[in-house]
């Protein structure tokens, strides 16, 4: 069984929003579109976006982490949004696990959005149907595209390469390897939704310089006859 998904690497996401607007432009003129923008030039502009990037601050100054957090539908393996839908418009594809909305069946009751813990479904106020990330289903199988480009728009756009696309059921896939190598995790595991999308945590590279490393016999100061002071526990420079 295939389960396509995104793996998002918070360790390199700089919060640039490329995935946000690239998703919008791909999908608004694609099978999911058009995606509405209301009050586009007025107060409080708002619109349908399948993907949003949020920002969180973790910790207190000066030990603060700024975390940019992109979020789209997680294509849950046990998606609560599907069984609650009264019309069958909300469905999960058997062949690849993508969760979709059938715009021609949807009555716009919004019930699926209530069932989703993640706040990733967006109701289109003009077409009056529920919308959400399609995992770019109209791209990833498009044989007119070269193989390397049969990936979601947000993945191809991401300048940081923070978005990995693949089959998380295939342990060999880049996505699965990224999850297992880097401690990939799921959001709100307590909800039992088994999100297919995963997140990779921040990883910190540290460097420890030993005092001994500072003092080498091949020190250029010696060339000048002004050898540095031997290492002491604190200040070498004075």
């Amino acid at each position: 069984m295939t389960q396509l998904a995104l793996v998002i690497d918070l360790n390199v996401c700089v919060g640039c929003h490329a995935c946000v607007t690239n998703c919008k432009q791909w999908n608004t003129s694609g099978s999911a579109g058009p995606l509405l923008d209301a009050n586009p030039y007025e107060a409080d502009p708002t619109g349908t976006f399948f993907n949003r990037v949020q920002t969180f601050e973790v910790g207190t100054y000066p030990n603060t982490q700024t975390v940019h957090f992109p979020k789209s539908c997680l294509h849950c393996e046990d998606p609560p949004c599907v069984p609650v839908c009264p019309t069958g418009a909300s469905y999960k594809r058997k062949e690849d696990g993508i969760v979709l909305v059938d715009y021609d069946k949807c009555i716009g009751c919004k019930y699926c959005a209530w069932a989703c813990p993640y706040g990733v479904r967006e109701f289109d106020e003009q077409r009056k149907v529920m919308t959400k990330c399609t995992l770019c289903v109209d791209r990833i199988y498009d044989e007119a595209l070269p193989e390397s480009e049969r990936k979601p728009a947000c993945v191809l756009a991401c300048p940081a390469g923070a978005r990995i696309f693949g089959d998380v059921h295939d342990p060999e896939s880049e996505a699965s390897v990224a999850i297992s190598d880097n401690g990939g995790y799921a959001l709100m595991p307590e909800c039992g939704t088994q999100p297919a999308n995963h997140y990779l945590p921040r990883r910190k590279t540290a460097l420890k310089i030993q005092n001994e490393q500072l003092y080498r016999s091949a020190n250029p100061l010696k060339v000048e006859g002004t050898a540095p002071l031997p290492p002491s526990s604190e200040d070498f420079a004075t």
């Binding site: 640039c16 929003h17 490329a18 946000v20 607007t21 690239n22 919008k24 432009q25 791909w26 003129s29 390397s148 480009e149 728009a153 191809l156 756009a157 991401c158 300048p159 390469g161």
Partner: peptide
């Protein structure tokens, strides 16, 4: 315009594109 994407053959961005470029 249906879609603006980064040009994978371009030495500068090698296919990626930013939020502005995508808009």
């Amino acid at each position: 315009v249906r879609y603006i994407e980064g040009n994978p053959e371009h030495p500068l961005n090698k296919g990626v594109i930013c939020a502005k470029g995508s808009s």
